[in-house]
Amino acid sequence: MKFKIIAGLVLVLSVIIASCGSQEDMEFKRYYLGGEQLYKQRCQNCHGTKGEGLSNLIPPLTDSTFLKTNKKQLACIVNNGLKGALLVVHGKSFVGDMPANDMSPVDIARVLTYVTNSFGNKMGTVTSEDVARDLKDCK
């Protein structure tokens, strides 16, 4: 009897954990795939199909250390743009300007999920809540 209850509990728990996992997975995939479309439409011309950037004009999106260190700034960069060679990516600064983007927080979250999990980066999902929070602290 006792054994049956424990077995039942274990079963229920593992079902919950498994479905949670796959739900997170689903959420990641939704963000990532939406982000891929947005990237193609709004970012790829400058940052390149492989995130390679353009010489010393436009930075690549392949510097995982830069992206991790500046994780909380990324939403602001995408939303407000950047003027005047401010960033140092892969040890270089860049001549070009990054334009501001008129995008909703959920779209920014999608495109950032794509960027931070492509081109050799692996940082997990960026949610629209993360973006909304980070946008409040833009410098």
Binding site: S55, N56, L57, V95, G96
Partner: peptide
Amino acid sequence: KKYADGLG
């Protein structure tokens, strides 16, 4: 010139 330098 700056653009040319940026392009390399």
